[in-house]
Design a protein around this nucleic acid. Structure first.
Lengths: 344, 344
DNA sequence: CTGAAAGCGCTTACAG
DNA sequence: CTGAAAGCGCTTACAG
């Protein structure tokens, strides 16, 4: 750590340049009218002096903090970390910083975090949570800045950026269908979860009829159990399984191997999440749906920014398309000679 | 979003109370001398008016932003998210907020993020990254506030909060030893990684001699490969395996099952990380080491706070102890009748 | 014990 | 085209 040098202020620059601080301010911000030469000279001098304007002072005058708050109730960050990263990336280019607040079940502490954000006079708030239909235990009625929900369910009328679960599942199942599989079953999470229902709908759209959907849990365990159930039922077993999550897919693949059923030749499998620790570890590696969470974060950042500037309505909704990441568990189309690991 | 009401300022409170703003400020902050009654009356009024002081204005005067920056280069957040969460939790109670900046390989963008933080006049900086010996691609020479490295390797002479890898591994291996296992092998990540070497050392301390250490990769794959190698070698195979990560342990357990070797009765296994998606999914569930990352974050937050106040030296180092999370993969001690899922 | 005044580092009308 | 002045919302000596 260097000696704590007193920061150079706009006053220092003005004195060195022999002009008023107003002129320096105008030169720096491209405001007012001043001759090109003068502006250039001032800019060069400011750079040479390593002058960096104090954002707090600027914010105080402009009545905009140039900062937004990010409230998350995730525990491991699997879903919200990439979202946060997208937000941070998108906003830094606009001179907007992100305050991070992590909260848990405790409403009192959540309130303390929110108050801290409000005391900072944030220009907007993004809420990003664990599950698409889990609400943050907090009363936002006194929040007088735009609020955007990212990934989390939003109370109706609020701005929202969501994963297009239906589209993702349709892509994944669609691929199985295009590869000629005709007895495709969908194994997914609890029916009470919005995401599970949407993914089931995507599956149905892809195959063009009701098909067979097994709702259960988001776990490997459930993948095992589903295979057991499917293969002990009467009639032909599936020739492909579209899973609602990578964890389920992992369970399915392991269970199939234990039964000596070859993947993908006998049964093709696709997952959902592209959670690399899972999807890269299955044998064979898993074809799965990437939710583009970083992009979702980016959109959420731009949304809250636009809303804070009044350019966007407070109830704007956006959906981020998913990408299919093709690995080996779904087999390849012999007529097209597709590679492995490419995304479409 | 409610109507954007003009915020009530200290001036409004002063007028309503019929006193000067200085007096309100003193009442609120407990500074100056004023009678208890007056202070109480002002506080009550301020609360009633829902007055919340503007932190930016306060910061500007106090020459402390009451905010710190958090720079992370993680991609999935598995390790840094809990750390971030600990930092946020620890600092909110001190009125300090956390600016989040996520960076990747691009030094130019990293610089932009750092500049944004510096322009905010942060009181300190925490760097938290992916791997204990991976450096952030950024020049910190012009950072004139305290810097704390959390989880990431720190250039010597810098403050640092680290996982006690050695201790964690000693606990895990020690448990196997106390349960009577005598042919314990350690399977871990690349020898080039600091964490792998420290965990190997902990293993050696627990068994009291050199033992057998297999360095490799941090993957399930490597767990499989190691089992193959161990069981095809001459001599007695291990009766326990202490793994350098949960992913390795998962590979080991799966490989043992494929060979019909019972876990834990024939071979006991312990992991490291307590990465729940892995450690809860192994069959049997994995006894493993929790790095207490949230606590690590808490310490890092308090450290940078103390340093910014001048209370702590800029090269303070701290180590956070690990906890052993006992599940079923290590077997239980019949003489003690220990439960499952408890931690020690 | 309390208040008028100066000041933190900027921006923004406004007068010249 | 440029600068003096007011002001953002606070805190902090300092005089009374």
């Amino acid at each position: 750590m260097a000696a704590r040098s007193p920061k150079v202020t706009i006053k220092d620059v003005a004195e060195a340049a022999g002009v008023s601080i107003a002129t320096v301010s105008n030169a720096l911000n491209g405001t007012g009218r001043l001759s090109g030469d003068r502006r250039e000279a001032i800019l060069t001098l400011a750079r040479k002096m390593r002058f960096r304007p104090n954002v707090m002072a600027k914010a105080l005058m402009q009545q905009r903090s140039l900062a937004i708050g990010l409230l998350t109730n995730d525990t491991y960050g699997r879903f919200s970390f990439p979202v946060m990263s997208g937000i941070s990336e998108a906003l830094v280019d606009h001179g907007v910083s992100v305050f991070l607040s992590t909260i848990d079940e405790d409403p009192a502490r959540a309130r303390a975090h929110l108050d801290a954000l409000l005391d900072r006079r944030i220009d907007g708030l993004i809420i990003s949570g664990r599950r698409a239909d889990l609400n943050i235990p907090i009363d936002l009625s006194d929040v007088d800045v735009p609020v955007v929900y990212a990934l989390t369910a939003s109370p109706s009328g609020h701005a929202h950026v969501a994963v297009d679960d239906l589209d993702g599942s349709r892509q994944a199942t669609g691929r199985l269908h295009r590869l000629g599989r005709r007895r495709i079953t969908h194994v997914t999470g609890p029916e009470s979860h919005l995401a599970a229902r949407a993914r089931a709908d995507g599956y149905r759209q892809a195959i063009g009829h009701q098909g067979r959907v097994l709702f259960g849990r988001w776990s490997e365990d459930w993948g095992h159990e589903a295979v057991e159930r499917l293969w002990s039922a009467a009639g032909d077993p599936p020739d492909a399984i579209s899973c609602g999550s990578d964890q389920i897919a992992r369970g399915v693949i392991d269970a199939l191997r234990e039964r000596d059923i070859a993947v993908p030749s006998s049964v093709a499998v696709v997952g959902f999440d592209n959670w690399e620790i899972v999807s890269q570890a299955t044998r064979p590696p898993l074809t799965t749906v990437d939710m583009n969470l970083k992009e979702l974060g980016r959109q959420a950042g731009l949304l809250v920014l636009g809303m804070s500037r009044g350019d966007l309505a407070p109830d704007t909704e956006r959906t981020v398309p998913c990408s299919l990441v093709v690995r080996q568990s779904c087999g390849t189309d012999p007529t097209r000679g597709e590679g492995v690991g490419s995304s479409s």
